[in-house]
Design a protein around this nucleic acid. Structure first.
Length: 434
RNA sequence: GGAGGGGUGGCCGAGUGGUCGAAGGCGCCUGACUCGAAAUCAGGUGACGGCUCCGCCGUCCGGGGGUUCGAAUCCCUCCCCCUCCGCCA
């Protein structure tokens, strides 16, 4: 949520900044609402004050046993109440409209964010890792996975529909190993606290991080209880600080979680229908930090570095991109994407997104800390994938594939793979019943 | 799912219709005592919002609604926590 004070003091500046990311903010209408709000609020509070006095007077009269005076004073209070009711109703109406407005408004992009309408305007910062040279035409992960008998889209569809995949044997093992490696790196080397949060959350929790009310159609929702399946662990992890005031010593708070993520992928019908790139359910290791505002920028760079370590350890080539204004997520003020090289597609694809949300989410969920003077202030929240496990598996298959379709396991992962150094083409033990 | 108990300020915990933003304690801040500290004593110490902003006003006792001139206190409803029973990985 954008700071209401800023909105009041300089709505033009807000509108200008939002325009950079393609959001139109109607300043004239806002001003109009503000004027009404002010008028109603002043009147309402004056009436409340009057009523308070009047009620007190009733009490005093009753105490002295002067029933006649008490009755007369009651009448006065009733008169005040009638007007108060009208004014408050009007006030609440304006207030509700303003609130709705605020909830739908995306975060302000940082002045540093490159200008642009869509992902084609994102700024490439640098490339890391050498792309593999194949003496043959590299296959894509869907073919590789099928040949290896580890990825099974058909059975996934049978069980749950399209965009679901069943992992078999070494596919499962790979997924487990990747998650384990990532968790170890972040917990042991980067100082994050491991958390196992619920995979379902209430609506207000999703509102805190910004998925609701605007992006309901992207979420799975349970019918009986009205709970939402989390689209990312960012949701529960960031909300750990909801309605809390952290003591000075508790920041920066760093959390890491390995969870399944669920996305309806509404509006992406044609996209990435092949393979595991875009699934309704996928595992992801997520990093979240809640920090002092002075450390926001620094934490953002730090998380990006933490995510990069994973890719470096896995020896997967990637590039770092800063998203342009038009490609920024709803809650983000600045975002880095890490994109891995996929030889099967001949393209870089997103595997991690690292966002500095400034106080946007903190304001929505009232995540605060006590400053030097002991006053509660909004914290800054940040999140980043560290990294997406499904896509890491895809990248690994495609980058480490061999001529015959087997896949070499990168050094760092071997301890987690029972010290295997490659996955062969033979069918897994037990095989598929189908 | 059934029965009962409960949700009060950073924390603990009183308060069952009126002057209660709320006793008391802890914590924290200031002062006294002390070479200094501890202990002790005295005073102070909530959040949010509005405005004609060195002050005044309003709101806030889990959320929402209701009764009343007036609600932390009464009623309805939802959420959460605890105990017992049932069920269950």
């Amino acid at each position: 949520m954008i700071d209401p004070h800023l909105l009041r003091e300089d709505p033009e500046a807000v509108a200008e900044t939002l325009a950079r990311r393609g959001y139109r903010f109607d300043v004239v209408r806002w001003r109009e609402l503000e004027e009404r709000r002010k008028e109603y609020q002043i009147r309402m509070e004056a009436l409340q004050s009057e009523r308070k006095e009047a009620s007190k007077a009733v009490g005093e009269a009753k105490k002295t046993g002067d029933e006649a005076t008490a009755e007369e004073r009651k009448g006065r209070a009733e008169t005040i109440n009638r007007e108060l009711e009208e004014v408050s109703a009007a006030f609440e109406e304006v207030k509700a409209e303003q609130h709705q407005w605020l909830l739908d408004m995306p975060n302000l992009p940082d002045p540093e964010v490159p200008e642009g309408e869509d992902e084609t305007a994102n700024a490439e910062i640098r490339r890391e890792g050498g792309r593999p040279e194949f003496g043959f035409e590299p296959a894509d992960h869907a073919d590789l996975g099928e040949t290896l008998g580890i990825l099974d889209a058909g059975t996934g569809a049978k069980l749950a529909g399209s965009r679901f995949t069943v992992l078999w044997g070494m596919g499962t093992r790979l997924c487990r190993a990747l998650g384990q490696l990532m968790m170890d790196i972040h917990a042991d080397e980067h100082g994050y606290t491991e958390v196992a949060p619920p995979a379902l959350a209430r609506g207000e929790i999703l509102e805190g991080t910004g998925q609701l009310p605007k992006f309901e159609e992207d979420l799975f929702r349970t019918e009986a209880d009205g709970l939402y399946l989390i689209p990312t662990a960012e949701v529960p992890l960031t909300n750990l600080h909801r309605d809390t005031i952290a003591d000075s010593g508790e920041l920066p708070a760093r959390y890491v979680a390995w969870t399944a993520c669920f996305r309806r992928e509404a509006g992406s019908y044609g996209k990435d229908t092949r393979g595991m790139i875009r699934q309704h359910q996928f595992d992801k290791v997520e990093l979240v930090q809640v920090v002092h505002p002075d450390q926001g920028l620094q934490a953002w760079e730090e998380i990006r570095g933490h995510a990069e370590v994973v890719l470096q350890r896995l020896e997967i080539p990637y590039r770092v991109v800063e998203l342009c204004t038009g490609d920024l997520g709803f809650a983000a003020r600045r975002t880095y994407d890490l994109e891995v090289w996929l030889p099967g597609q001949g393209a870089y694809r997103e595997i991690s997104s690292v966002s500095w949300c400034h106080d946007f989410q903190a304001r929505r969920m009232q995540a605060r800390f006590r400053n030097g003077e002991g006053k509660p202030r909004l914290a800054h929240t940040l999140n980043g994938s560290g990294v997406a496990i499904g896509r890491a598996l895809v990248a690994l298959l495609e980058n480490f594939q061999q001529r015959q379709g087997s896949v070499v396991i990168p050094e760092a992962l071997r301890p987690y793979m029972g010290y295997r150094n490659r996955i062969g083409v033979s069918r897994p033990q037990g095989g598929s019943p189908g």
